[in-house]
C-alpha cells in the first residue's frame, strides 16, 4: 500500500427539497491509496453518484473532510476546485462526453488547454495519450467516425493526458456492448498495472469484480468498508 490519495472522513451530503432535507450521504469514511484500483458499487439511489460528484470535486460535502493528494478540498472555492479537477482528476463518463466538432486529439488536449500548456506540447502529449490507448492512428478522426469503444478509449486518453492523481470513471461501460466493455476494462487493467490510481463507479458486479477492491454503498453509507482506515 502506498500513500493515501483520497481520505474521506464523516462526509455528509444533504439536499434541501422544500421542507424535507434528504441525506444522500450519511457519514462516509474511506481511504484510497496510490496505485489502487477501486470499484464503488451500489444500486441506483444508493448515493454513489453523489459520492462520485464529491470524489470528482464537482460538488462539495455539506459536512466532513475530503483530502485529495494531501489537499483539503471540502472548503475550496469554485475556481480552486476547477484547478483541482484539471490537475488531479481524469474523468471518464458513461456518455463519453466528447465534443463532436473536434478531432480525437483536439478532444484529448482539452484539459491541457485549461492547464495553460503550450500548443505544440499539447499536441505531442495528446498523441502520446492516444497511442497509449491504442488509437494513435485515429488522432485526426472525429468522434462520429469512431465506434463506441473507440470513443470511450479517446475519453480515457483525455483522462490520462494530464497525468492525474486519480482516474474517476463513472459507469464507463454503461453505454457499450460486451466486446467494447471488455476492451475498455482491459485498458483499465493495463493502466492499473502501470501504477495508475483508478476509481470506477458502477452498478454491475462483474465490472466491479475486475477491480482490486470493492466499496459497496447502500443508503448513503459504506456497507462493506473493506480495507477502510
Amino acid at each position: 500500500m502506498g500513500d493515501p490519495i483520497i481520505e474521506l472522513s464523516q462526509v455528509w451530503k444533504s439536499y434541501e427539497t422544500g421542507a424535507v432535507s434528504v441525506h444522500a450521504l450519511r457519514g462516509i469514511d474511506a481511504r484510497i491509496d496510490e496505485g489502487e484500483y477501486l470499484a464503488v458499487i451500489g444500486p441506483s439511489g444508493s448515493g454513489k453518484s453523489t459520492l462520485m460528484n464529491i470524489l470528482g470535486c464537482l460538488d462539495v460535502p455539506t459536512s466532513g473532510e475530503y483530502h485529495l493528494a494531501g489537499q483539503d478540498v471540502s472548503t475550496m472555492t469554485e475556481v480552486e476546485l476547477a484547478e483541482v479537477r484539471n490537475r488531479r482528476i481524469g474523468f471518464v463518463f458513461q456518455q463519453f462526453n466528447l465534443l463532436a466538432s473536434m478531432t480525437a486529439w483536439r478532444n484529448v488536449e482539452l484539459p491541457l488547454v485549461y492547464a495553460g500548456v503550450p500548443r505544440a506540447e499539447r499536441k505531442e502529449r495528446a498523441i502520446a495519450a492516444l497511442t497509449r490507448v491504442g488509437l494513435g492512428e485515429r488522432a485526426d478522426h472525429k468522434p462520429g467516425e469512431l465506434s463506441g469503444g473507440q470513443q470511450q478509449r479517446v475519453a480515457v486518453a483525455r483522462a490520462l493526458v494530464t497525468e492525474p492523481a486519480m482516474i474517476l470513471a463513472d459507469e464507463p461501460t454503461g453505454n457499450l456492448d460486451s466486446e467494447s466493455t471488455t476492451d475498455v476494462l482491459e485498458l483499465f487493467d493495463e493502466l492499473s498495472q502501470l501504477g495508475r490510481t483508478i476509481v470506477l463507479i458502477t452498478h454491475e458486479y462483474d465490472v466491479a469484480d475486475r477491480a482490486g477492491r470493492q466499496l459497496v454503498v447502500r443508503d448513503g453509507q459504506i456497507a462493506s468498508p473493506i480495507g477502510a482506515a
Binding site: 464537482l58 484547478e83 479537477r85 462526453n97 465534443l99 482539452l110 484539459p111 485549461y114 483525455r158
Partner: peptide, 16 residues
C-alpha cells in the same frame, strides 16, 4: 449545456 459541463469537469473556471 453538456459541453459547458464537460469543460468545467476538465478544469474550466467559471471565468473562462
Amino acid at each position: 449545456i453538456r459541453e459547458i459541463g464537460l469543460r468545467k469537469a476538465l478544469g474550466a473556471t467559471p471565468g473562462s
